[in-house]
């Protein structure tokens, strides 16, 4: 009996008993995910950060240690220092970086509010229609989300083509005059400081993206307890008052989520810019993601591209934090 107790005690010490088994289970279950994240998420981030301190180009061999050093020299914070050069003598790379930041911020800060302004009322409207019609509307508005973004960009390119595009054709029919407007290529087409080419990319992005937020809002609307709105209605609140003072505040966490997700994805949009405009006319649509891609893979300036990607990461991080703070809520329903 005593020996059996000692054996069990030894085994418990050796394997840590129930607690040890739990640890081993958690380790086994989580290891693949952690290794996956380490390889495909953490390492690239660390690598990009390291590259940003080097004048690195894959065309040069550099030192044997990861190709860093040698012909790919360490430049410290030089890339970041150059980014703060706002003089007229700044290099083309630096000026394009500044343009990229401006275009990206403009794009994101137009896309996010417009997206929310469209999707929230749309979701509320769809929720208010008859049960049988609801899935039809949901499907119609969600369909563009399923489309390939490159396909969407090509389709919008056809619509906006100067000579053969649908938009100019419609204007020509309406005005009775041959209309040949280069929506994506005329640098002089600027409204309220926003280039029309950028507005066209925004239109294509919204067309493709609104279904996603709409589904999120529909789910949130369905989660609001009926009793709350019923009570308001009994108290004499109008439909607008219910939406303004009950639905909207209760949707605040969802609005926060949707705005952060939209903001992050807006900062990362690449394919629409690449296919629709390639950054033109006159770099008016040169978003940061496109600029990073071009610097890294077309012009082989990996170090500079890495520094820009670090800045993009910081911008998204800070804006997400600010958004989370502004829209945070302390209560649940």
């Amino acid at each position: 009996m005593a020996s059996e107790t000692i054996r069990l005690e030894r085994r418990r010490r050796l394997f840590g008993g129930r607690e040890g088994a739990q640890k081993r289970f958690v380790t086994a279950v989580m290891s693949p995910a952690i290794v996956f994240m380490a390889i495909f998420m953490v390492l690239p981030i660390v690598w990009a950060l390291a590259l940003s301190f080097f004048d690195f180009s894959p065309r040069r061999t550099g030192s044997p240690i990861l190709g860093l050093g040698g012909d790919n020299p360490f430049v410290g914070l030089e890339h970041y220092r150059q980014m703060t050069d706002f003089s007229s003598d700044a290099t083309l790379n630096v000026r394009q970086f500044h343009i990229g930041v401006k275009v990206t911020l403009l794009f994101a800060f137009i896309v996010v509010p417009v997206n929310l302004l469209i999707t929230l009322p749309l979701a509320a409207m769809i929720e208010s229609v008859h049960d049988r019609a609801r899935p039809i509307f949901r499907t119609i508005f969600f369909l563009p989300v399923l489309a390939s973004s490159v396909g969407v960009a090509i389709m919008w390119g056809f619509i906006l083509h100067p000579q053969n595009g649908l938009l100019n054709l419609m204007i020509s029919k309406m005005t009775g005059k041959t209309t040949v407007i280069s929506w994506l290529g005329d640098p002089d087409l600027v409204y309220f400081g926003v280039p029309v080419a950028l507005l066209m990319v925004i239109a294509a992005y919204l067309w493709m993206d609104i279904g996603y937020n709409m589904v999120i809002f529909i789910a949130a609307l369905q989660a609001i307890p009926r009793s709350v709105t019923d009570a308001a209605r009994v108290d004499g609140a109008s439909a607008w008052q219910i939406f303004r003072h009950i639905t909207l505040p209760l949707l605040r966490p969802t609005i926060l989520l949707a705005s952060i997700l939209t903001m992050i994805s807006a900062f990362q949009v690449f394919d629409l810019f690449q296919v629709m405009t390639e950054g033109r006319p006159d770099d008016q649509t040169l978003a940061m993601s496109l600029n990073i891609y071009r610097s890294a893979f077309r012009y082989q300036q990996m170090g500079w591209a890495a520094a820009m990607s670090v800045v993009l990461f910081l911008i998204v991080f800070v804006i997400s934090l600010v958004q989370a703070r502004l829209l945070r809520t302390k209560w649940e329903y």
Partner: peptide, 14 residues
């Protein structure tokens, strides 16, 4: 605690 104890996984992988 288990998660903390798995730091070695990250270290080995890296």
């Amino acid at each position: 605690r288990s998660i903390r104890s798995m730091r070695w996984v990250l270290v080995v992988a890296s």
